[in-house]
Design a protein around this nucleic acid. Structure first.
Lengths: 258, 258
DNA sequence: CGCGACTTTGAAGTAAATCAATGGGCGTGG
DNA sequence: CCACGCCCATTGATTTACTTCAAAGTCGCG
């Protein structure tokens, strides 16, 4: 069911791809690296060495990127698609830790500490990844302080995001959790209204908030009925962020409207 | 109620200290720095420059170290005592994020990203801290790749710990949460039995597990009655870690024993 | 059109939060 | 040395919000 085997590194291999997909050839790795924001700070010589230790992974939906308790052997940078990073729970449920999209990366902390992976990671849809060999990555880091520095910033960023998630999940009411989550995506504190797209299936967003899909659906419905948000498929419109924020401080908001 | 003012940086200020405390004089900062494991990797010249930007904080219990949404102006390294790092919740409850003890530190990620602090931090008991000025810290980082590297490792470590906490709090049963927490402290997978001391008040440990003190108390009592652990004050003895681990995979363990 | 994946809705059960009161340990002071 | 007060932990009774189980409904796609 799960195919984690990447394509052969020989780019001329006549591997039939779905017609509407453009497979990125191995030869185009240097170019792809250079294009990604992730590598903007990296000097050209570094990128060349990096490219030689990099493979393109073309992962169909549901294929595994990393398995819990196993060593990660590469840094993964998402070119396209979506990777769901999660911790498995009893009742075969999941706690989603992060949803990694294009331009984002996966695994720095693991690689640096040479520790086993604390999470599973699977493709949430067909995805392209760059897999940079761990040793090559570590070697480049040791050569250039700017890269170490950038990685430090990146891991710090992930850490801060995780703290924000912790804060959200610590809210004891589901309405509070969802409201906090929505408000987290407010562009600036000046914007009263804004629209944003759920980064994944509602099921996975729910799992990120520590809720079941059912509860998430109900809360979304509730907020909608209250006129605080409008939900259409994966698109959510917040008209008045301050008003939504207000329920954050309310004790009980169950039947306030009716 | 909360005094966050540190002592004057002039060590000769005749500030009366509790008789049973040895105030660490400002003059002894270089020595103290050298002694801490945290600074083992730092070259001597770095430590000297660091020392000049470092203050000793002698914090009475309950005094604030950092406030949520405010800028951190120093890296804090705990010499003695205990700092409780937490996120405030409605119902004036807290979600404890970490309990920082001697040798541990606080704030690297914030300082590096120059972002506002995402948590409160207060002394859980009378504590000594070294407060290293943010600018001095950043400057030393920029000068030496080894320090950047070490900080990267440190932040990565904190990140991994936070993921482990996330995993624990994601467990939907309180018994599972507590059991997971206890088993996290197993020295090696060979050790069947081991003893360990709760790092803080039960109240705070509970808050770290996302539980109320009442629930935590009940679960501890339950596990004790099952003969899986023995609790005496802050000391917990686990006789058979495997047996305790077994309930992790059990569906329902409510009244299994009686 | 019909199938599969995902979501919504409903009804019932349950575990943990909450409220409230008691109990124990420890330091301080009589 | 005992008495008092404070802080922390425990225990019990009640409530409530979330999960769970089950089924129907929507959407996109071959």
């Amino acid at each position: 069911m799960e195919r984690s085997q990447p394509y052969s590194s020989l780019s001329h291999t006549a591997r039939p791809a779905p017609v509407n997909k453009l497979p990125i050839a191995q030869a185009r790795i240097p170019e792809t690296l250079r294009r990604l924001a992730y590598f903007q700070a990296w000097p050209d010589e570094s990128l060349e060495r990096l490219a030689s230790g990099t493979r393109i992974l073309h992962l169909p939906k549901h294929s595994a990127v990393a398995r819990k308790n196993e060593r990660l052997e590469a840094l993964n940078v998402v070119v396209s698609g979506l990777i769901r990073v999660f911790i498995p729970l009893p009742n075969n449920m999941e706690r989603v830790v992060s949803l990694v999209g294009p331009g984002d990366s996966l695994g720095e902390a693991c690689l640096i500490l040479k520790q086993a992976c604390p999470y599973h990671a699977v493709a949430g849809r067909d995805s392209h990844l760059l897999a940079i060999d761990a040793r090559v990555f570590r070697r480049e880091l040791s050569l250039d302080i700017a890269l170490t520095r950038q990685t430090l910033e990146r891991v710090s960023q992930r850490f801060m995001e995780t703290l924000r998630d912790t804060e959200i999940c610590a809210q004891r009411s589901s309405v509070l959790r969802v409201a906090s989550y929505l408000l987290l995506h407010r562009p600036t504190s000046e914007d009263l209204g804004f629209t944003f797209r759920l980064p994944a299936r509602k099921q996975d967003v729910a799992a990120k908030l520590g809720l079941t899909q059912e509860t998430f659906s109900r809360v979304l419905g509730f907020l909608d009925k209250q006129g605080l948000i409008q939900v259409s498929a994966g698109l959510i419109r917040i008209e008045d962020a301050d008003k939504l924020a207000r329920i954050t401080s309310m004790k009980d908001c169950k039947e306030a409207g009716q």
